[in-house]
Nucleic acid binder design. Structure first.
Lengths: 132, 132
DNA sequence: GTAATTGCAAAAGATTTGCCCCATT
DNA sequence: AATGGGGCAAATCTTTTGCAATTAC
């Protein structure tokens, strides 16, 4: 495996991801947060590190269908994502057992499964409460 | 609802989507296909129509985590997607009943569900066969 | 005839990359 | 000291948009 260094920038980015567990920040948001600690960090560095960390399996990318930019999250136990179309928030939700245990033996092209993503799109209770 | 016209461009785009059911083309691919029929169609028109048709519920956008561009599909009965990391193909696969019937009554922020996406990532049988 | 839609090209956004310098090892 | 990684800015890529001309109705 390739040699890598523990730079202050990388540590800060991981830290931002750890401390915003439920907000699934974009690169831009991570950049803004990181700048509070390292005012000179550049957006390019944020992207380079996110890509590197994703390669290491320490960061996951999340894309939803109507958003231009990717969101990122630190690696955590398997879970699903709930996207509220009203407040644009992405929430972590438990991954149902039946999904975790899915078998694909029927008439599918699936040979081996690496990962699985379940995205629920709808309205969150908070938004519905505010509306009424 | 807003007035809309049946342009040749729109019909061709829908046709391309219908005739490439299992390939989930990108806008660029749709553009190239459409040019075979309408050599002057522009990429902007393809995007504009895809957005319009998505608004009408006739087209769906699919984004996967490591691809820069969106893929599109014509509206079809609910199904899940299988992404082969080897050949980059996206296959339609049946949506398991247990997923279709998921209930969210526990400790989640979910109030109402509009739609649901299940993405499986792995290797398809064809790729595995070729490798060995 | 009117207004939606097109083609074209420029703009906008997100992400990547080249280059030279700095900092970790 | 060697070299991985950073900062900056330019480049790239995808998608959107303004505008004048066209076309469906």
């Amino acid at each position: 495996m390739k040699k890598s260094r523990n730079t202050r920038q990388r540590a800060v980015i991981l830290d931002v991801l750890k401390n915003t567990e439920s907000s699934h920040p974009t690169a831009e948001t991570i950049y803004r947060e990181a700048r509070k600690v390292l005012p000179n960090i550049s957006l390019g560095t944020v992207y380079r590190n996110l890509n590197f960390l994703r390669g290491q399996g320490l960061v996951r990318e999340i894309r939803s269908n109507n958003e231009a930019s990717s969101r990122f999250e630190g690696e955590r136990p398997p879970h699903a994502h709930f996207h509220c179309t009203c407040c644009q928030t992405v929430h972590d939700i438990p991954l149902p057992d039946c999904v975790r245990n899915l078998q694909w033996e029927g008439d599918t092209p699936i040979c081996s499964v690496n990962s699985l993503e379940l995205h629920i799109v709808g309205a969150c209770s908070q938004c519905v409460a505010v509306q009424s």
